[in-house]
Amino acid sequence: MTLLPLAPDVLLGVALLFTAWRALYTQALFPAVVFFVAFGMLLALAWMRLQAPDVALAEAAIGAGLTGALLMAAVARLRGRDEDRP
């Protein structure tokens, strides 16, 4: 069968769907942000599979790295807030 070359793409697609699902439906915010960063990293791999190395670089540096740092800083501030007022 000719499905074998598609195996990495299928695996990557399932991993992308899984991380996106966990990022959007996990109860706690911090694990959700961690899953979102993982989603960004996997998406960078997907860009490489689509022969777009420039987009992969931008996604890894901005989409996963900087957005992750922004989100984690925001979650840390929100958490400090929530512990104040249970």
């Binding site: 420039d54 670089l57 901005i62 900087l66 740092a69």
Partner: peptide
């Protein structure tokens, strides 16, 4: 080759953070 101002700028920002 692959690279450019946006990727480099993001990396420099990451260094700053």
């Amino acid at each position: 080759r692959p690279g450019g101002a946006f990727q480099g700028g993001a990396l420099l920002a990451a260094a700053g953070i």
